[in-house]
Design a binder for these strands. Structure first.
Length: 819
RNA sequence: GCCGAGGUGGUGGAAUGGUAGACACGAAGGACUUAAAAUCCUUUGCCUUAGGGCGUGCGAGUUCGACUCUCGCCCUCGGCACCA
């Protein structure tokens, strides 16, 4: 990299050598604390720029560079724009990989984590990012996780944190329970293992209490995609709960439906295998079959059970229920296509108007009664369920009414007769936070010998995670093996057993942004004064994979903290930008299969080149495919920038002719780069700078004034500095300017000088470009059209044709419509 | 099945109603060199009878004018999915 051409100037040349200048400036920035945020600044507006923090897995990979360096360029840009920027970094340090490393390599998870953090801090410095490291946080430190426990206790007091025995997802590889959000396609999002259902008591956060408020996202500057994913995940449906009386007892079965307009078409009821009334409903002679069916269905895996292609199966219970609208006696089945966890765990079967019910009815030979048609006329035979809305038939007094009206009317009727009521349901379930693993925040509660819950008192926080010797996943937290941790002599309650489960690590990241923006003081989770000045986060960036995990949990946590009077704002992250996924050879980059380590690239080409390459690749939100060949373009360009900016301007061939053109170019480029950076369009702001460089090179050859050359090159350096912080700092120094370029203002532009005085007028015939001419100053429409018609090329086209219309767009184009 | 994003040269991409292909990679030719690398210059959407013709997934429409807007379809990617 160090061998470099002699330029045609012939003067002595210092080659661009990133391996020398990058460490030099990284050291100097560090010593000078130039990125330390001034929290007592009140002249400038605050701007909190945050990127989702990494898990300390060992090495920063190229994906981290793709996430962090454009976000850094954006933060630097905001600094240059005169904002008081807070840009922080830390480590999301609890989680299974540390524990698994402990198991496979017999290393203490704490030691493993901190060794990785040391290495990653070093690698972060190689990036040259503008972090305020004095605000670093590491979530596995007691001074941080103490506050997870503190918030937990506050939430427990309010009933937001609660313990419940119920069906949970169990990961048989990691040997722990998971939250719904961590189960993807019936598999653990982390281990990939097929999850199984288990009944066990676990701790939950009541996120469902906030379902409705979490749907309010109109004021969030977030990608529509993420908002939509959250809406889908929360899954609000409006419907009706209908009570069906049993023939055998005074009890009734509640069913939930969004299509109560089809109530007259009910020909059966299906209960989920978990439904509590199964025993009561089932007639003695059917008990054996029903029990066999239930035990079979609980054994089948979740993937099998929820497959949409799977045949609908069920078993008749021998019981009957009464349709409250028409008094029909309908059979009750148990069937595992009905989920115990949604609605009421029971559905009314309307085979004519629901595809699943239709398949079920066909299989068990149940009647199919059509009660809705397109036009309200009878239809004798149907081959599949007619799911669209229409006009009701065979529905007593509601016949002839359209579906939408009937939904309201029937619900109202049911409410009056006390046989049903309008209901809102959500797909969202409460957040299961217990984990049966070691490396996490201990849940701060005790149990007495009757299993009563006794919370740890606040003054005893933090409950320190003790050193463990044994980490093998057994299905129970390794903490159960620590007798000293396990038992506690409580002054009031006597001998108590500690909770040994730890918290989901998403608890840690649900409020870390608040801690970042706080004095690292130990007697409070965060400083309210600073929080009110700096939050919500002005710009958050990160991957879309957290759409329904971290981003949803964090919004929930924010609302809880607000309701507990810790903070006074509704949302944690005002604006969000998702970068795309970086691939190599169209495949995911991974350590083993498809590696791409940044450190060797930095060594060979320099951090600035790697940063610029990633930003130039394409639009940041679209991701991209790494291509070694394309890397050349960036290194060539950086060398040209270096060459241009180190030329001795006394050697320039002074000529004032080009001054106006250079002025225009300068103003255009400042504006273009500004507007593009503001929208995260790094690729086009870099191409504007490349054009600027190409043009400057031509102006050197053609000659220009010395002072305008100096001005141009300094502007180039400043415009490039957010994206390539090292080379620009070096060039700035070589220009004799003072340390540091990163405290410089973003250059101003003069709008009147952005576009050229010489305008190109395009001449179209029937909308196709045929000719063009340059024009200076103002001319009238008539004059311009006349000029267009007189053009040689145009007259050829006009020969023998009639002009039927003339379109003129001011200072842009003439379109002649001919016949 | 539902929701979302997207489809432009050999490649990454640019242009959001007005010159399609900016910028860059790659390729070809030339200069410099004993030579190579590096660098610099030229060419580079396709077809062509050299005047033009065609061209942004496919088909229609709106418009003086459509990569851009509307409708229908095909394909790719991401998310969700037996949610009653």
């Amino acid at each position: 990299m160090s061998n470099y051409k002699k330029t045609k100037r012939g003067s002595e040349f210092i080659p661009y050598n990133p391996s020398v200048i990058e460490p030099k400036w990284q050291k100097k920035w560090n010593e000078g604390d130039i990125y330390k945020t001034n929290f007592s600044e009140d002249e400038k507006d605050n701007f909190f720029s945050l990127t989702m923090f990494p898990y300390p897995s060992g090495d920063l990979h190229i994906g981290h560079w793709y996430a962090f360096t454009p976000a850094d360029a954006y933060s630097r840009f905001k600094r240059m724009k005169g904002l008081n920027v807070l840009h922080t970094q830390g480590f999301d340090a609890f989680g299974l990989p540390a524990e698994n490393a402990a198991i496979s390599r017999n290393i203490n998870p704490m030691k493993w984590t901190f060794e990785n953090i040391d290495n990653m801090r070093r690698q972060f410095r190689l990036m040259g990012n503008s972090y305020d490291w004095s605000r670093e946080l590491v979530t596995c430190e007691p001074k941080y996780y103490k506050w997870n426990q503190y918030f937990f206790l506050k939430m427990f007091e309010k009933g937001i944190a609660y313990r419940k025995n119920g069906a949970v997802w169990w990961d048989p590889i990691d040997q722990t329970t998971l939250a719904n959000e961590q189960v993807v396609d019936g598999k653990s999002e982390r281990s990939g293992a097929e999850v199984v259902r288990k009944m066990m008591p676990q701790w939950y956060f009541k996120i469902t209490d906030y379902a409705e408020e979490l749907l309010e996202m109109d004021d969030l500057g977030w990608p529509e995609k993420i908002k939509q994913m959250q809406r889908n995940w929360i899954g609000k449906s409006l419907g009706t709960t209908v009570k069906f009386n049993l023939t055998s007892s005074k009890n009734n079965i509640s069913t939930f439906t969004t299509r109560v307009d089809t109530i007259y078409g009910v020909t059966f009821i299906v209960l989920a295998p978990e439904h509590p009334l199964i025993d009561e409903v089932t007639e003695n002679s059917f008990k054996k079959n029903v029990e066999t069916y239930i035990s079979k269905s609980t054994k089948s895996s979740e993937i099998e059970r929820t497959s949409t292609e799977r045949e609908k199966t069920g078993e008749f219970t021998g019981g009957y229920a009464i349709n409250p609208m028409n008094g029909d006696k309908v059979p009750i089945f148990v069937g595992d296509y009905v989920l115990g966890t949604y609605g009421t765990g029971a559905v009314m079967g309307v085979p004519a108007h629901d595809q699943r019910d239709f398949e079920f009815a066909k299989k068990y030979d149940l009647p199919i009664n059509v009660v809705i048609t397109k036009d309200g006329r009878e239809e004798s035979e149907i081959n599949q369920a007619e799911v669209s809305k229409g006009i009701l038939i065979n529905s007593q007094q509601f016949s002839g009414v359209n579906s939408d009206q009937a939904l309201k009317d029937i619900t109202k009727f049911m409410e009056e007769k006390n046989i049903g009521n309008g209901t809102v349901t959500y797909h969202l379930r409460d957040w299961l936070i217990s984990r049966q693993r070691y490396w996490g925040t201990p849940i701060p509660v005790f149990y007495d010998d009757k299993n009563n819950i006794i919370p740890v008192s606040e003054k005893d926080l933090p409950v320190i995670l003790p050193d463990a010797k044994e980490f093998m996943p057994t299905g129970q937290s390794p903490l159960t093996l620590d007798e000293e941790f396990l038992w506690f002599d409580h002054p009031e309650h006597g001998k108590l057993r500690r909770e040994t489960d730890t918290m989901d690590t998403f608890v840690d990241s649900s409020w870390y942004h608040l801690r970042f923006a706080s004095d690292p003081e130990n007697n409070k989770p965060f400083s309210s004064k600073i929080i009110s000045d700096w939050l919500p986060v002005h710009q958050y960036t990160g991957g879309a994979e957290h759409a329904v995990m971290h981003l949803l949990y964090s919004r929930f946590f924010n609302k809880v903290l607000r309701d507990l009077d810790f903070i006074d704002f509704d949302e944690p992250y005002q604006n969000l930008f998702n970068q795309g996924v970086l691939l190599k050879n169209h495949q995911k980059i991974s350590k083993r299969a498809n590696p791409l380590a940044p450190d060797p690239l930095v060594e060979e080409y320099g951090a600035d080149a790697v940063r610029l390459y990633l930003m130039f690749l394409g639009p940041w939100d679209q991701g991209g495919d790494w291509n070694d060949d394309a890397f050349n373009g960036i290194t060539r360009w950086l060398n040209r920038v270096w060459d241009l900016c180190t030329r001795n301007s006394s050697e320039i061939n002074e000529s004032p002719e080009n001054n106006n053109e250079i002025e225009r170019l300068i103003n255009y480029t400042i504006k273009k780069v500004h507007d593009d950076l503001d929208k995260f369009k790094f690729n086009t702001s870099i191409s504007a700078l490349m054009e600027f460089t190409n043009q400057l090179s031509k102006f050197w050859d053609a000659g220009c004034k010395k002072d305008i050359w100096e001005k141009s090159t300094k502007i180039l350096i400043r415009l490039l500095s957010p994206m390539a912080p090292h080379i620009t700092e070096e060039l700035w120094e070589m220009k004799g300017e003072s340390f540091s370029i990163h405290n410089e203002k973003y250059p101003e532009w003069d709008e009147s000088l952005v576009s050229s005085e010489v305008r190109t007028i395009v001449i179209q015939i029937n909308g196709k470009m045929r000719d063009q001419f340059d024009m200076e100053g103002e001319k009238s429409e008539e004059e311009i059209i006349r000029m267009a018609e007189n053009s040689e090329k145009i007259s050829q086209h006009l020969e023998g044709k009639e002009i039927i219309r003339k379109i003129y767009v001011k200072n842009k184009l003439v379109n002649l419509v001919i016949k």
